[in-house]
Design a protein around this nucleic acid. Structure first.
Lengths: 233, 233
DNA sequence: CATTTAAAATTGGTTAACCACTTTTCATGT
DNA sequence: ACATGAAAAGTGGTTAACCAATTTTAAATG
């Protein structure tokens, strides 16, 4: 799963317009699962756009499972009917650039789940990794340095320990945007830093002791301020 | 957010090896936030790989917020310290291809949240959209036709109504893989289809009446079989 | 010596040519 | 008519050339 397709780009509008035209083409020609689309060259010619942009558009639709490109052969409609095809393309076209509030909301949802799963599934290696990030965080705070990075790595270590590759991937995907906004709005104040050391340690201990409910409870406390912030923006 | 970057590819190994080398380079040269990386040409020369692959690797790191490419200028280390850089690149390199179990686990987590949010935030337009997908689903089932697509679109309509663009995006991202596996393992049996019509209708009504708890409860019932299946695989 | 400025080198991004392979076409032989 | 096979056309993927804008260099100017 390569989420890259969702990256923002100056060409996004062009690519979305191509996706729209591909959709119209599929409907007009009544293409069904397995049917072949016109070649990239023909599409770029017909739509009056570069082949690169056609390729990007196809890659995006391929990522969402709607098309399937086969080398030296062609691009085919995936095993998905015309109804789902239309519905999903509409959804894809209307995808908004994630806003900060939705990112935080999603992060909280993830972390309250990953912390429980981590408490159940964590391996010895996971614990070691988490402990390392925990110590690195404490050290930075004790030296009164900015520790946003170390804070983050601790949470990512939990996600990894959850044993859920999908959530781990998504956590990594939303992380950069979260950091950017945190620094932009100064979410993590230094006043809260010392308190956070204790909270991190408690979360770690709960996971280590495989106390699922306590782990979640401590994470909830840790997120308390984040909650408030999220809903006040 | 263009998740495309996470797509599987034959070049993934090469690109991951390039990412590894970029990480080593950043460490060796002690590059800090804002510092410039060698040009794409120099990197492709140094690593003995094509510039395209270097570009793909950089795009991936850019998606995860670790690098920032500026046209006609260069590629720069993002505003992220060396610790987070190393930690996150390690995480990125060790990302597993999402397995079916983790996909289902994530989907359930999402849907139990989106259904609650939808009950709170749904607009009249959302309701209209959901009703359409609901009716399309019923019609297919009554005609004893396969309705996997319509089932899916109903759930996507809920995700959209949740008003959370991040979860909406992620739901779309995991959907194709879910469908593929459903059809592969014949998860949705026709015996359950008639029952599902009623369940869908109840979920819709709960969202319409903004009964948050009931909406979640009905969704949980709807997922009951999915739960069992997921944990028996 | 400092300042200006223009030209040359360098950059990420884009386009066009090329490649290896597949698919189609159609002439040939039976 | 039909089967065979080779050649031509077509395919997605890859590489190399090109572009416009930036950055550096150094020569010209005061």
């Amino acid at each position: 799963m390569d989420l890259q397709v969702l990256a923002v780009s100056d060409n996004k509008k062009i690519q979305n317009s191509i996706i729209k035209k591909i959709k119209e083409l599929i409907n007009y020609k009544n293409l069904e699962p397995g049917d072949k689309l016109p070649s990239e060259r023909m599409l770029s010619d017909r739509f009056n756009v570069s082949r690169s942009n056609v390729r990007f558009a196809i890659q995006k639709l391929e990522f969402f499972g709607l098309l399937k490109s086969i080398p030296q052969s062609g691009t085919f409609v995936a095993n998905i009917g015309v109804i789902a095809m239309n519905g999903m393309i509409n959804d894809i076209l209307s995808l908004d650039q994630p806003d900060f509030k939705s990112l935080v909301e999603t992060r909280i949802l993830f972390e309250l789940k990953t912390v429980k799963l981590a408490a159940i599934r964590r391996t010895d290696e996971d614990l070691k990794h988490m402990k390392e990030t925990l110590d690195a965080y404490s050290e930075k705070i004790m030296n009164k340095e900015n520790a946003v990075q170390e804070d983050l790595l601790f949470h990512l270590a939990i996600a990894k320990a959850s044993g859920n590759s999908t959530m781990n991937t998504f956590m990594l995907a939303i992380t950069p945007e979260i950091i950017t906004n945190f620094e932009k709005y100064h979410v993590c104040d230094k006043n809260q830093a010392f308190l956070a050391i204790k909270e991190h340690a408690e979360i770690y201990e709960a996971i280590k002791n495989q106390d699922t409910m306590l782990a979640k409870k401590k994470m909830k406390i840790h997120f308390k301020m984040l909650y408030q912030y999220c809903y006040n923006i």
